[in-house]
Design a protein around this nucleic acid. Structure first.
Length: 546
RNA sequence: GGCGCUAUCGUCUAGGGGUUAGGACGUGAGAUUCUCAAUCUUAAAACACGGGUUCAAUUCCCGUUAGCGCUACCA
């Protein structure tokens, strides 16, 4: 029996374990919790499930919080967030700080006869399971320690036997309501009496002194925090009947559940590192925008009511999101669609913001050339000192304000040229690499290039073009280039691809790329500003030889 | 093996007893361009299978199959 909780503000929680980086599956769970809370005017709690002290690390908790903030999520209560008066005090929000709470509850259950000491050894339990499997029966615990007499218990304790604490579950089906899947029911005989507290030596004293298990603490926390809707991954479905039994043992109302389907990789296996980026931090580092990430995650397992709208900001999502529209079937993570959304949001974003993010990508990938001093926060004594302290140190003359403005404009035109063809910002330095120089040998060696360059026409085109470049003094402008091209065309009678491709290879290292009208000013002006960029003249000299 | 969840274009999904089964990503073609990308136009592409119920099922029910999850004194 589940108790409907009406007349209460919805309360939801996201309860990650700080044992690694936040990955897209959990991020989506967090997002759906947040959207539901904001949609319904409810409260969103962040709780850190760090009972696994071996694997939990503070740095993961810090990163987790940063990643959630980056996505645009916030919460009403959680570690480091002081409760608002109307949320009441439900902390602490780290399970490691709540152990005394669990202990009290264990005492209560034992005193009421709803839980019992189980002296079975792991070997005995394993044997039970093996036999059940052999007989094609459900592998549920037999419950043989359920009805030990007080005398037997005393004898076992005196003998120093180890015991765990188990909940005695009632002999009726355990069912719960799921907003995504409807009613889910488990027959009582398929659910073991759940372990509440891990095995401990009899000499330890009170049973509550042991270490409580996940299913138990999660239920106590959810109940005590007044969680009305448990929104989590569907890998918890089979835990849910045990948790329902715990709610019932305490006489607590059972919340609504919403189990979100698994996110799979392209091979239909559960999404994991080997499918590529899966953690939010890595997507962020690659230059995905948080609005693209949040939008994509929202679409993965949910669709708008009109069946057509695909792009949403978080603010637009809040009023239209509903758990009833969440799909129960597993979803394959589609990097192409994420890329499409990212391109969409890059176009929409404030150019200044993109410029800063993009500059960071260049700083990482081309530290010799960048920073260009286009972002003001890079133009500080701290950053200068930081660069100087590197090994090897990077010393940069601080350019004049005029030069800074020039470089900023130059960088903006670089972005204007390359941004449209980029899925994520980390691709920028790669796609624009030829602006910063090419390797003539590699350009010659490329098979496609070699085929083009082998033609006689290519040779004469390059000779004619090179002679004009050599005799030219000063910057090459697009007008110069255009004039030369028509002169070369007239002199050789060669036009179209045969005319352009060899020159494109000489100048950019590839037979395809952006328009010359845009590329030439970028090269010439960049070089003129003192950036380490070879000029058109340099390139021809290097490629054709003297 | 047991228990559970799931099943509409390649992918994410809309829909729902009678529809030309809609949209988006991706893919193909065309336009544009020296070329690539971007952009615009356009095309192909789906109700897993078998039984019911019904005048009618892709839609409701049952089963099969397949995929996934859980099957711990992990979380």
């Amino acid at each position: 029996m589940f108790v409907a909780m009406t007349n209460t503000i919805p309360r939801v929680r996201f309860a990650p374990s700080p044992t690694g980086l936040l990955h897209v599956g959990n991020a989506r769970t967090a997002l759906y919790n947040w959207l539901f809370a904001r949609r319904t005017g409810g409260l969103f709690f962040l709780r850190i499930e760090d009972t696994d002290l071996e694997r939990s690390e503070a740095r993961f908790e810090t990163q987790l919080i940063e990643d959630l903030h980056w996505l645009g999520l916030d919460w009403d209560a959680g570690p480091g967030v002081v409760d608002e008066p109307d949320t009441g005090d439900h902390g602490p929000y780290r399970q490691s700080e709540r152990l005394h709470i669990y202990a009290e509850h264990t005492e209560r259950l034992l005193a009421e006869g709803k839980a019992y000491r189980c002296f079975c050894t792991s070997e005995e339990l394993e044997a039970e399971r093996a036999q059940a499997a052999a007989e094609h029966r459900p592998q549920a615990y037999s419950g043989r320690c359920r009805n030990l007499s007080p005398a037997e218990i005393d004898r076992n304790l005196a003998a120093g036997m180890h015991f765990a604490v188990r909940l005695k579950i009632e002999d009726h089906p355990l069912r719960f309501h799921d907003l995504v899947r409807g009613t889910v029911e488990f027959a009582a005989e398929t659910v073991s009496d759940p372990i509440l507290v891990r095995s401990m030596s009899s000499s330890k004293g009170l049973p509550s002194a042991g270490v409580p298990v996940y299913n138990y603490v999660v239920t106590i926390d959810d109940a005590l925090m007044g969680i009305t809707h448990v929104i989590r991954g569907d890998d918890h479905i089979s835990n849910t009947p045990k948790q329902v039994a715990i709610y019932q043992a305490f006489g607590w109302p059972v919340p609504e559940f919403a189990h979100l389907s698994t996110i799979l990789g392209p091979d239909r296996e559960r999404l994991s590192k080997r499918h590529g980026a899966t953690s939010i931090l890595v997507f962020r580092q690659m230059g995905y925008l948080p609005e693209a990430m949040a939008n994509y995650l929202a679409l993965l397992g949910w669709g708008a009511e009109d069946g057509k709208t695909e792009t949403f900001t978080l603010a637009e999502l809040v009023p239209i999101f509903s758990l009833e529209r969440v799909t129960p079937s597993p979803a394959i993570f589609d990097f192409d669609k994420l890329n499409w959304l990212n391109r969409h949001y890059i176009k929409l974003a404030d150019p200044e913001r993109i410029a800063k993010l993009a500059e960071r990508q260049f700083c990482l990938q081309k530290p010799g050339i960048f920073p260009l001093w286009t972002s003001s926060e890079l133009y500080t004594s701290e950053t200068i000192a930081l660069l100087a302290s590197l090994d090897p140190p990077i010393h940069l003359d601080i350019p004049s304000p005029e030069l800074i403005a020039q470089r900023k404009a130059w960088f903006a035109s670089l972005l204007a040229l390359f941004l449209p063809g980029v899925d994520y910002l980390a691709q920028l330095p790669v796609k624009s690499a030829f602006i910063f120089g090419i390797d003539p040998d590699a350009a010659h060696a490329n098979p496609e290039n070699a085929a083009i360059l082998a033609a006689d026409s290519a040779r004469s085109v390059l000779t004619e073009f090179a002679s004009r470049v050599r005799t030219h003094s000063g910057h090459v402008t697009p007008e110069d280039f255009k004039r030369w091209m028509s002169e070369v065309k007239a002199a050789t009678g060669i036009k179209g691809k045969e005319l352009f491709h060899p020159i494109r290879i000489a100048l950019t290292g590839a037979h395809s790329g952006p328009e010359f009208d845009k590329v030439i000013p970028l090269i010439e002006e960049g070089a003129a500003m003192g950036l380490a960029i070879p000029t058109i003249h340099d390139r021809i000299q290097q490629f054709v030889g003297v």
